[in-house]
Simulated assay, not measured.
Amino acid sequence: MKWTYEGREYLESTDDTDLNTIAERIEEGSQSFAEESDDPEIEYPYKGLHLLLSSLDGLITWLCENDSEIEPNHYNDGEEPVYLGRQKKRALEEWYDEHAIFGVEDDEGEAFKQKWDAFWNHRHRIMHGSPDAYYDENIGVATLFFVGLTAHVVKERYDELN
């Protein structure tokens, strides 16, 4: 939660209106997730987790839009660029590599990249309505972690560009 909070603050410190909007969504999602997790009558933290996953997707899209080597797959009716999931995943993995994120291993020596892949695949199933995808606290905590981590990477990229 601390990394997510710090990441949100980093985004708020930019002059980028999209990043500021995403920061607001992260704040609302974090608060909602915490409230839903504390309420024993709520089985799944839908609202908070959805807002956080949406924020993560927004941050990844921002990275794609600000990378001259990544071309959108197409443009939507609103003339906004659309990046496919594989483009987003590859882009974020490249930025994580650049910031030495994937060099981390857990106590059992499992590479962080494997955990990222498992999270990405589950996130993809949630976003595309798979009946096997689920919202729970474990996914929520992982999402908080990746939102915070990605916000830090976005801030680094923002600073490089400005």
Rank of each mutant, 00 (worst) to 15 (best):
C64E: 05
Y83K: 04
H50T: 05
R90P: 00
L63F: 01
L49S: 13
K47N: 14
D67Q: 00
N76V: 03
L56M: 11
V82A: 05
R86M: 04
E93V: 13
W95N: 10
W62H: 07
L53V: 07
L63R: 04
C64Q: 01
S54P: 04
K88Y: 05
R90M: 01
D67P: 01
I60P: 00
P72L: 03
V82E: 08
Y75R: 09
T61N: 15
H99E: 15
H74M: 09
R86G: 05
L63E: 07
Y83V: 01
Q87K: 15
L59P: 07
W95K: 05
L56Q: 09
Y83T: 08
C64I: 12
N73C: 07
E94W: 03
P45A: 06
S68P: 01
L92Q: 07
G48N: 12
E79F: 15
D57I: 11
H50F: 12
D97P: 02
Y96T: 06
L53I: 11
I101W: 11
D67E: 06
W95I: 01
D67S: 04
E71M: 09
S54Y: 12
S54C: 07
L53G: 03
H50S: 14
K88H: 04
Y96G: 11
L56D: 05
P45I: 04
E93G: 09
D67G: 05
T61V: 11
H50K: 12
L51M: 14
E71G: 03
S68Y: 10
L63S: 03
E69R: 03
G78Y: 10
E71S: 09
E80H: 03
S54I: 08
L92F: 12
E69T: 06
S54Q: 11
Q87V: 08
D97R: 12
E98C: 07
P81N: 10
H99K: 02
N73V: 02
D77H: 02
Y75E: 10
I60V: 14
G58D: 08
P81T: 06
G78Q: 10
N73D: 03
I70C: 00
L84Q: 09
V82H: 02
I60C: 01
Y75T: 07
L84I: 00
E98K: 15
L92R: 03
P72Y: 03
L52Y: 13
Y75L: 08
D97N: 11
L84F: 00
